[in-house]
């Protein structure tokens, strides 16, 4: 259950020819779509040598109890994520736009459901 922003992580890529091989398999983030029409959801991560074995491993690690009907795997290093420091500039502007929520508007009861 990691999230995409994994910590310092050096030994994942195979070494160039002539260099000692990195022994650790790359990290993959796993997304599963369940049975009820919801979109793929991040469920955790795992190590695998390539995408094909990452999907097989994800099947064993994250769907032992019918949790899903579709698996996506993405190499963790390929994910771009917003950083916590950007929290203010990224999300605060939406705080002063309360009119985006339907509850901002008073609709008389007589009008009925809207």
């Amino acid at each position: 259950m990691s999230s995409p922003e994994s910590g310092s992580y050096d030994a994942t890529e195979a070494a160039p020819h002539g260099k000692p091989r990195a022994t650790e398999w790359p990290l993959w983030e796993v997304f599963i779509r369940g049975q009820h029409g919801l979109s793929h959801r991040h469920v955790g991560s795992l190590h695998a040598a390539d995408a094909e074995s990452a999907i097989k491993n994800a099947r064993d690690v994250y769907t032992r109890r019918n949790e899903g009907l579709s698996i996506w795997v993405v190499e963790a290093s390929a994910i771009a994520a917003s950083s916590p420091e950007e929290k203010g500039p990224l999300y605060e502007p939406s705080n002063d736009k309360v009119y985006r929520h339907p509850t901002f508007f008073d609709i008389p009861d007589e009008v009925g459901a809207m």
Partner: peptide, 12 residues
């Protein structure tokens, strides 16, 4: 292990 790795330690 995955949870521990998010703290900056490698699996190996």
């Amino acid at each position: 292990y995955c949870a521990a790795e998010t703290l900056g330690v490698s699996r190996d």
